[in-house]
Computed example of a mutant assay.
Amino acid sequence: MNLARAYIEVEDFDNALAILEQLPEDNKYTAVLKYYVYFHQGDSENMERIKAQLPTEVASLPPSLPDFGIPMSPLLAKL
């Protein structure tokens, strides 16, 4: 998940999604990241599919990244 988040931070959504697709669908953090990626890719069909899996308080908001992020991550330099 951290590698997917690093790709998201540098707006490489295709690679982020490739990583996220390998992770279990039932993980809420994975779902939030996929929701965010699909939003930025303009994929409304998959956005709606993922939105249905999210808690109502998350699904009712515009897609956003959780606050904890990975600032200064050594992964960012490797991308």
Results as ranks from 00 to 15, higher is better:
28 K>M: 07
26 D>A: 06
48 E>S: 13
70 I>D: 02
64 S>Y: 11
78 K>F: 10
69 G>V: 01
55 P>L: 01
50 I>N: 09
23 L>E: 12
47 M>I: 13
5 R>Q: 15
24 P>Q: 13
78 K>C: 02
68 F>G: 01
75 L>F: 06
12 D>E: 12
62 P>A: 10
40 H>A: 10
26 D>R: 01
48 E>F: 10
42 G>C: 13
38 Y>C: 10
48 E>D: 14
61 L>H: 11
52 A>F: 00
29 Y>N: 02
44 S>R: 15
41 Q>K: 15
7 Y>V: 07
25 E>G: 01
39 F>A: 14
11 E>D: 15
16 A>G: 09
33 L>N: 06
74 P>C: 11
67 D>L: 05
38 Y>V: 10
45 E>W: 08
36 Y>M: 12
7 Y>D: 11
16 A>P: 08
72 M>H: 11
13 F>M: 13
74 P>H: 12
63 P>E: 05
75 L>H: 04
24 P>I: 00
35 Y>R: 13
32 V>F: 04
28 K>G: 00
73 S>I: 03
61 L>I: 03
4 A>E: 13
10 V>Y: 02
30 T>H: 09
49 R>E: 14
44 S>T: 13
7 Y>H: 13
56 T>R: 13
36 Y>T: 09
65 L>F: 02
67 D>N: 08
31 A>P: 00
9 E>W: 05
35 Y>Q: 11
67 D>R: 02
76 L>M: 09
59 A>V: 04
11 E>V: 15
64 S>F: 10
40 H>G: 09
37 V>Y: 03
47 M>P: 07
1 M>S: 14
46 N>S: 11
19 I>F: 03
51 K>N: 12
26 D>S: 03
69 G>Y: 00
63 P>F: 04
36 Y>A: 09
17 L>W: 08
54 L>S: 09
5 R>F: 15
55 P>G: 01
60 S>G: 01
22 Q>C: 04
13 F>P: 09
61 L>D: 09
67 D>V: 06
65 L>E: 04
57 E>S: 07
22 Q>D: 12
34 K>Q: 15
57 E>I: 06
28 K>P: 00
1 M>Q: 11
37 V>C: 13
27 N>G: 02
44 S>V: 15
30 T>W: 01
48 E>Y: 11
40 H>K: 10
33 L>H: 07
36 Y>L: 07
65 L>H: 01
5 R>P: 10
62 P>C: 05
53 Q>D: 02
4 A>S: 14
10 V>Q: 08
14 D>Y: 12
63 P>T: 06
27 N>F: 00
66 P>R: 08
29 Y>P: 00
44 S>E: 14
71 P>Y: 06
24 P>T: 03
26 D>C: 01
13 F>R: 02
12 D>L: 03
56 T>G: 04
11 E>G: 03
48 E>L: 13
49 R>G: 06
49 R>S: 13
77 A>Y: 04
34 K>W: 05
66 P>M: 11
33 L>I: 11
27 N>V: 01
75 L>Q: 10
50 I>H: 10
44 S>H: 12
70 I>T: 00
15 N>P: 07
18 A>R: 08
54 L>H: 08
7 Y>I: 03
31 A>T: 01
